[in-house]
């Protein structure tokens, strides 16, 4: 019988500085859900970061996926108006 065992998919961590406004989390989560990726955790820092006088916050998202997925997800997130900075943890 053909084996269905595969290599473990690595966990990816993204760190975003986002606008603290209605709809931000919805737009970001859509980038993941539209591509069939499930976020394993979302951590929203309670302390607000001022960015050009507007309230912003730091968002840490973890998900399981290949490095190439992380690369494209980061590029897609960086095109959203609500995402001011995007990067990975390493």
């Amino acid at each position: 019988m053909e084996s269905l065992e595969t290599e473990a998919v690595p966990e990816q961590v993204l760190v975003l500085i986002v606008r603290d406004q209605p709809g931000t989390l919805f737009q970001i989560s859509a980038v993941f859900s539209n591509r069939g990726i499930s976020m394993s955790s979302i951590h929203l820092h309670e302390e607000s970061i001022p960015c050009n006088g507007k309230p912003c916050t730091r968002l840490v998202i973890r998900f399981f996926g290949e490095d190439s997925r992380k690369k494209i997800i980061l590029r897609l997130l960086s095109r959203l108006d609500c995402v001011l900075e995007s990067g990975d943890s390493g």
Binding site: F26, Q27, A30, N34, L76, R79, L80
Partner: peptide
């Protein structure tokens, strides 16, 4: 495109 999709 859905409202959550993006047109560039």
């Amino acid at each position: 495109l859905l409202p959550t999709d993006r047109l560039q």
